[in-house]
Computed example of a mutant assay.
Amino acid sequence: MNLSLEEARTLVTAALKAAGAGPLMAASTARALVLAESQGQGGHGLSRVGQYATHLRNGRVNGSAQATVVRRKGGALLVDAQEGLAFPACDLAMTEAVALARTQGVALVGVMNSHHCGVVVDHLRAVADAGMVGLGLANSPAAMPAAGGKHAIFGTNPIAAVFPRRDADPLLIDLSLSEVARGKVMLAAKKGEPIPAGWALDAQGQPTTDAHAALAGSMLPLGAASSPKGAMLALMVELLVTALIGANFGFEADSFFVDEGNRPHLGQLFIVVDPGALAGQNGYFDRIEVLLSEMLTDEGVRLPGARREVAHRHAEAHGLEVADAVVASLKALANG
């Protein structure tokens, strides 16, 4: 079935409101999920609506939460998501970060008591619109072991960055720190297919190609087969978005993929830099184009985010093709 982006947002908003989300939370979350879907990021798109609705109904999310700024000092600021869905808290964080960076040159904004935040780089789009550079980090429920370890401690801990350009789409960089996205293992499990060696460990900490055993065990960090670098990066992100701002560690948060469990109290951290405070706006825009031009001299180079932007524009013009079963599920949720 074809849905316009507005139709999809309306349907998702209604589904979340029926599950107990307040109007602002439902609308903010719907915008983010539909944006993800429109870019081909289905794992963070409409497939999450049922999960969020269940968490709202089961009390894993506070549907009446009102994100608030709880601490300010210089260029640093802390937002409390109040155990709600992450999106309105991240919206507030981005608004505050851009305003703060305009006056301070740089802003560091943390979000605590949060939940799953979707596509991290999408939160940074407002930063690019303001002509600023942005970095985003987040943690998630435990899915990866420490270097040399066997049991899951860190989440897949995504990192993202946005770099605006003068007369072109910004660079959009977004990646998780596991060797492969957990969603690929889940898909293999549903199909009854094996996974490649080097993706995951079983519950006993042994390498496995069994997708079901992998889901019961842990994901391997990026590059784990030859280096501890991925695990070290995951450790850095974990500390920055937890110890620094007061959020839970990944191993303290119950999985997003179970209906019952605790409120995860996860963290997100955003850094926003005004180029005008350093090289200057024109200097920044000139230099980034020099680098990108050099990159594009090699055939086959694709700038990060380009494919997402093409997909999004196509969806804006032609709508989203959504499976009938998914639309029926969303309508059922919207009808309570």
Rank of each mutant, 00 (worst) to 15 (best):
Met1Thr: 12
Leu3Lys: 14
Leu11Asn: 10
Val12Thr: 11
Ala18Phe: 03
Ala19Tyr: 06
Ser28Thr: 12
Ala30His: 02
Leu35Cys: 08
Gly42Arg: 15
His44Met: 09
Gly45Asp: 09
Arg48Lys: 14
Gln51Phe: 09
Ala53Ile: 12
Thr54Glu: 13
His55Lys: 01
Leu56Val: 13
Arg60Val: 01
Asn62His: 13
Ala65Asn: 07
Gln66Met: 05
Val69Tyr: 04
Gly75Met: 08
Leu77His: 07
Leu77Trp: 03
Gln82Asp: 15
Gly84Phe: 10
Ala89Gln: 09
Thr95Val: 03
Val98Phe: 00
Leu100Glu: 15
Thr103Phe: 02
Gly105Glu: 09
Ala107Pro: 06
Leu108Tyr: 00
Val111Phe: 05
Val111Ile: 12
Ser114Lys: 07
Gly118Tyr: 05
Val121Glu: 15
Asp122Lys: 05
Ala126Cys: 04
Val127Gly: 07
Ala130Val: 08
Ala130Ser: 09
Met132Cys: 11
Leu135Tyr: 15
Leu135Glu: 01
Leu137Asn: 01
Asn139Tyr: 00
Pro141Gly: 05
Ala142His: 06
Ala142Pro: 03
Pro145Ala: 01
Gly148Trp: 04
Gly148Glu: 01
Gly149Asn: 13
Lys150His: 06
His151Ile: 15
Ala152Gly: 08
Ala152Thr: 07
Gly155Ala: 08
Thr156Met: 10
Ile159Asp: 13
Ile159Asn: 14
Ala160Asp: 07
Val162Leu: 08
Arg166Thr: 06
Asp167Ala: 15
Leu172Gly: 02
Leu172Tyr: 10
Ile173Trp: 10
Ile173Lys: 09
Asp174Arg: 03
Val180Ser: 07
Val180Leu: 06
Val185Gly: 00
Val185Glu: 00
Leu187Asn: 06
Pro194Met: 04
Trp199Thr: 11
Gly205Asp: 10
Thr208His: 10
Thr209Gly: 13
His212Arg: 15
Ala213Thr: 05
Ser218Pro: 01
Ser218Trp: 03
Pro221Asp: 05
Leu222Gln: 04
Gly223Ala: 06
Gly223Gln: 04
Ala224Asn: 00
Ala224Gly: 00
Gly230Ser: 12
Ala234Leu: 08
Leu235Asp: 05
Met236Phe: 10
Glu238Ala: 13
Glu238Arg: 08
Glu238Trp: 05
Glu238Gly: 13
Ile245His: 11
Gly250His: 00
Val258Lys: 13
Asp259Glu: 15
Arg263Asp: 12
Phe270Ser: 07
Phe270Met: 08
Ile271Phe: 08
Asp274Thr: 02
Pro275His: 05
Gly276Asp: 13
Gly276Thr: 10
Ala279Arg: 05
Ala279Tyr: 02
Glu289Asn: 15
Val290His: 14
Leu292Lys: 01
Met295Asp: 01
Thr297Ile: 02
Asp298Glu: 14
Val301Asn: 13
Val301Phe: 14
Pro304Phe: 08
Pro304Arg: 02
Arg307Val: 10
Arg308Glu: 05
His318Val: 04
His318Ala: 14
His318Met: 06
Asp324Val: 14
Asp324Ile: 06
Val326Ala: 12
Ala328Cys: 06
Leu333Cys: 03
